[in-house]
Design a protein around this nucleic acid. Structure first.
Length: 118
DNA sequence: ATAATGACTGGGG
DNA sequence: ACCCCAGCCATTA
């Protein structure tokens, strides 16, 4: 993987989120090495290649709610995609205690292994 | 090199 | 619990 950009790390991490689980922007930012770059994660997903097979719907905000109001992906679309995977919404909110993806540090390292050897 | 731009977040009121 | 706001930071729409 040549010159691992922050965006590429975010895309790779997003692809690793299992179906039926969700991750938050801040969570992925931290895994990518920038705990304070949550906003940049949203940008990374917004600018991901259209042909890439990335489960963008599995990334939501720290409140357990969908934050895609401002982009082409409508909230209903993201919610329906998640519900199709088994994620339950209650009052437009996902219970993070139940559905948040919680990989071990080792798993995260393995997911990003391709970037480390740069 | 600078400024602008968000699919954010945590804390305070 | 809810709303608001200042701080955040990689990338360049």
């Amino acid at each position: 993987m040549a010159h691992a950009s922050f965006f590429e790390k975010i895309w790779t991490l997003t692809r690793a989120i299992p179906p039926g689980r969700v991750a938050t922007y801040g969570q992925l930012a931290a895994y990518a090495g920038q705990p304070r770059a949550a906003r940049t994660v949203g940008w990374a997903l917004h600018s991901m290649p259209a042909d890439a097979d990335i489960p963008w719907q599995r990334v939501i905000n720290a409140r357990g709610q969908i934050s895609s109001r401002r982009c082409e992906h409508t909230v209903p679309l993201q919610q329906s995609r998640l519900e199709a995977e088994g994620v339950v919404f209650r009052n437009e909110t996902v219970d993070l205690d139940t559905f948040q993806w919680r990989p071990s540090m080792d798993e995260v390292d393995a997911i990003l292994a391709d970037f480390e050897s740069d």
